[in-house]
Simulated scan of single mutants.
Amino acid sequence: MPPEATAPADDQHSTRGAYVTEGESFDRDMTYIDDRITRDGRDGWPVEGGRYRLIAARACPWANRTLIARRLLGLEDALSVGMPGPTHDKRSWTFDLDEGGVDPVLGYERLQQAYFARFADYPRGITVPAIVDVPSRAVVTNDFQQITLDLAAEWTAHHREGAPDLYPVAQREEIDALNRWMLHRVNNGVYKVGFAGSQDAYETEYRALWSALDELEERLGRSRYLMGASLTEADVRLFPTLIRFDPVYHGHFKANRQTLASMPNLWNYTKDLFTTPGFGDTVDFSQIKRHYYYVHEDINPTQVVPLGPDLGPLLEGHDRDRFETDTWGPEGSAPPPPLASEVVDPAHTPLHVTGR
Rank of each mutant, 00 (worst) to 15 (best):
Asp200Phe: 00
Trp328Ala: 11
Ala261Tyr: 10
Gly107Ala: 13
Leu72Gly: 09
Asp200Trp: 00
Pro46Asp: 02
Ala201Ser: 15
Leu238Lys: 08
Ser286Leu: 08
Thr325Gln: 14
Pro247Gln: 12
Glu161Thr: 11
Pro2Gln: 07
Gly280Gln: 08
Pro8Gln: 10
Asp29Ser: 06
Thr156Leu: 01
Pro337Asp: 08
Asp176Gly: 01
His348Asp: 15
Pro61Ser: 08
Asn64Lys: 05
Asp77Val: 00
Thr156Ala: 12
Thr270Glu: 11
Lys271Cys: 12
Lys90Phe: 13
Val190Tyr: 07
Val139His: 01
Leu75Arg: 09
Ser25Cys: 13
Ala7Arg: 07
Ala5His: 07
Ala138Gly: 13
Lys192Leu: 02
Val236Phe: 05
Ala334His: 11
Val134Pro: 00
Trp210Asn: 11
Thr66Glu: 14
Leu67Cys: 05
Gly189Ala: 07
Trp328Gln: 12
Lys271Gly: 08
Ala234Thr: 12
Thr270Ser: 14
Arg320Tyr: 02
Val283Asp: 03
Gly312His: 07
Tyr294Ser: 14
Ala163Pro: 10
Gln145Glu: 13
Tyr294Trp: 12
Ile147Ser: 05
Ala56Lys: 06
Leu151Asp: 04
Glu4Arg: 10
Leu213Asp: 05
Glu297Tyr: 05
Ala212Gln: 05
Thr6Asp: 12
Leu216Pro: 00
Ala347Glu: 15
Arg180Ala: 14
Ala163His: 06
Glu161Lys: 08
His159Ile: 05
His13Cys: 10
Asp77Thr: 07
Trp62Lys: 03
Pro104Glu: 10
Ala9Met: 05
Thr232Arg: 04
Gly312Glu: 14
Arg65Cys: 12
Ala212Glu: 04
Val140Thr: 03
Arg185Ile: 00
Pro46Tyr: 03
Tyr292Pro: 09
Asn300Leu: 11
Val105Ala: 11
Met182Cys: 02
Ala340Met: 02
Ser333Ala: 15
